[in-house]
Design a protein around this nucleic acid. Sequence first.
DNA 1: TTTATGTATTTTGTATACAAACGGAGCGAC
DNA 2: GTCGCTCCGTTTGTATACAAAATACATAAA
Lengths: 227, 227
Amino acid sequence: MPDNHRTPIQTIQKRSLHDQAVEQIRDLIIEGHLEPGHRIDEAALTTELGISRTPFREALRTLAAEGLIEIRPSRGSRVRKLSTEEVHGLLELQAHLESLAGRLACERATDAEIAGLLDLHDRMIVLYEARDRLPYYKLNQEFHTRLAEAAGNSVLAETQRSLQARLKRIRFIGNRRPDFWSAAVHEHAEMAEALRARDGSRLAETMERHLKNTWDRVRNVISSEDR
Amino acid sequence: MPDNHRTPIQTIQKRSLHDQAVEQIRDLIIEGHLEPGHRIDEAALTTELGISRTPFREALRTLAAEGLIEIRPSRGSRVRKLSTEEVHGLLELQAHLESLAGRLACERATDAEIAGLLDLHDRMIVLYEARDRLPYYKLNQEFHTRLAEAAGNSVLAETQRSLQARLKRIRFIGNRRPDFWSAAVHEHAEMAEALRARDGSRLAETMERHLKNTWDRVRNVISSEDR
DNA sequence: TTTATGTATTTTGTATACAAACGGAGCGAC
DNA sequence: GTCGCTCCGTTTGTATACAAAATACATAAA
């Protein structure tokens, strides 16, 4: 009997210490274990990760290019602290970018991709109804990422991913207030509908509005904890 | 007698070997001294630059994050070769981005910034009439960059710069045909006019069209030298 | 008490040394 | 001839050593 259901082939890939370090440090930042503005202690982190400074410092260069940390010559690296203006700038750009992504996805996505997105959306609704915040948040991120991927423009997808990473911590805060969360869910429902109908203009418009509103939701929260 | 006319104080800034290496290698790539798809010979380049491999390899990580080179684990780095699809993707994204930049610049730019851009445009016209292609090209790049900066969104400006760097070599090709160049100049004149009137919608529309047309101009050229 | 100056300690930047992985050349089996 | 193997030179990845710079600290002068 042939194995029709064998697991899909996974290309085996070499992972250098650099790559692993990038991921680990990125996660530490995104998940808030390394606080914004806080200095990055090379000695401590290298021993913690069990690697030497060479791949570690290369990882810092990568993360600096991604905008997650900043390196000041001879005075160390620190987790980048986003000013209110930068958060606004990031969301403004993301709104515009995902609006494009939405339009293109309606034109170019395969039916399977759209079905996948709609399924994702359904699962988000279930989680919302259970008020299961963290898993909802994760699916939400995935939804936006996969929508960008469905637009058939790899540079766009890559840029979206980068912006999203930089905003990740901040956006998590945005859904804390129940009414904010509910509004976001409504917008997502609208997005799903437009996607189902492959209505590019409407999806584009909704995406843009959704992210503009996200800024309003987020701004409320960060204004209190601002420097 | 007090020195009222002493030269203004210039903050002394430290430039690590890393930073210098990034710039140098980036220029080598952009100016075509390192060919796309070609392997990067660490030994040769480090001796050429007179530095050791450590800062050099950090520079490679930075450039990889910028999308100019690609690093394949254990098999070296090479100058990234753009496929036709990627060029299209880059220009599609840039079109959308600069459209936003145009709209925002009309809202937020200072009068001085606008005057500066218009002056730039005038100088471009002079160069066009002299058919002085390289200087024209450089001012053109500067125009797009400074327009993005005038939008008052640092992330947008940064992203624009990154996309532009990746496309730099390719776009230089685009203006080779006289009729193409002439069309581009016409579009620029329209942009200048919209800018002068601070007509955001019109500038946005023109920017987008300009870059869409750029794709058409470029596509003609790269299709012949494609892999 | 404050400010300045010199010294010790830590941290960062760069070079180098070594280990591991890759990529061919040559050789033999089929 | 093609495939597979082994060996060897080369390139890449990582650790470490050393140099340079910045920071912290202590002491002395105002």
